[in-house]
Amino acid sequence: MIYLTKGLLNKQYTQLDGLPDFSHLVKATGAPQEALKMTDEQLAGYKSSAVTYALYGTVNGQQRRDDVLNRTVLFIDVDDESDYHTLSDCLANMFTALGINFVIYPTISNGIKYGARLRVGIELDKAVELEVYRKIWLVITHQLHVKGDITAINGSFKQLQGLYVKTSQNALNKPIITTDGAGLPVDKFVAVYDKNAGKYQLKKAHESGKNIDTIGKIPTWAEHNRKFIACLLDPESNYMMFGGWDNMLTALGGWTLRSTCGDYGMTADVLEAVNNMGSDPISDSELGKKFKSWAKGWTY
């Protein structure tokens, strides 16, 4: 099934019928949304409110808090690796040699943040649950020597993927679409993992903390602040830098309180806004309870 939302703050899926899952991804990539002549700052807001996000598989309900039972398309978000043309061609050659259907397209951060900044979508020959999805993801990223965002395999199986948006910043980097192959043979890739599971464990290269650009030597406090700002802009992609969603929120709360010299009202507003940008946000009542508990440990 195809589940869509417009913007990160939308808490309900729109379910689309009548089109195979991967075919929808191909169609959306070939005829993308356009957000041209926007500044980098304007695109950050557009990403939160107007970009179409998708999940392909089966959800036990219609709300983003509902359990995702399986997925039919495997996604790999690649950041800070080579440049778009070099990396996309390398990946395309490998997938073509395997005879599988795939799309590769630049993300909305491409041309703004350093590195390739691309998303790969691979058709699977059958729907898979989290553990199988995780095994396939690890085998592919290991064999291709790419660093991918681990959120969907290590944090939230509910993670949405932004569909291709053509911007003035990424317009020179064209998508690659291949539909004359077949779905990735799930059982064969699982067998490769199971034969040598130790070889395919997560390595530091996969950790989302690597998504923060570092140019030269910068002070510790600056690197610290960059992590918080990254979570303010895109918490879904960066919260694992703090070891989990709750950890990210409480760390962000303490940082905001110190930065505003004790403004608890603003701190609460920031945490509510960031929490609502997640694919599986904490309920308002539960967040209120956690805020009171966290605040006892904050100083300024």
Results as ranks from 00 to 15, higher is better:
187 D>L: 01
188 K>Y: 08
189 F>M: 07
189 F>E: 09
192 V>P: 07
193 Y>K: 01
193 Y>L: 12
195 K>L: 10
195 K>N: 01
197 A>S: 06
197 A>P: 14
197 A>M: 02
197 A>L: 01
198 G>A: 04
199 K>Q: 03
199 K>N: 09
200 Y>T: 07
200 Y>W: 05
201 Q>K: 05
201 Q>N: 05
201 Q>W: 12
201 Q>H: 04
203 K>F: 03
204 K>A: 11
205 A>H: 05
206 H>E: 12
208 S>R: 09
210 K>N: 13
211 N>H: 14
211 N>I: 07
212 I>P: 11
213 D>G: 11
213 D>F: 05
214 T>F: 07
214 T>D: 08
214 T>A: 11
215 I>D: 12
216 G>C: 10
216 G>V: 05
217 K>W: 11
219 P>V: 03
220 T>L: 00
220 T>W: 02
220 T>S: 04
222 A>H: 01
223 E>G: 14
224 H>R: 02
224 H>Y: 15
225 N>E: 03
226 R>V: 04
226 R>L: 10
228 F>W: 06
228 F>L: 13
229 I>E: 13
229 I>L: 13
230 A>V: 00
230 A>F: 14
232 L>D: 04
232 L>V: 13
232 L>H: 06
233 L>M: 08
235 P>S: 06
235 P>E: 05
236 E>K: 06
236 E>H: 13
238 N>P: 02
239 Y>R: 02
239 Y>H: 15
241 M>G: 06
241 M>S: 12
242 F>P: 02
243 G>L: 15
244 G>A: 11
246 D>G: 03
246 D>R: 10
247 N>A: 15
247 N>T: 05
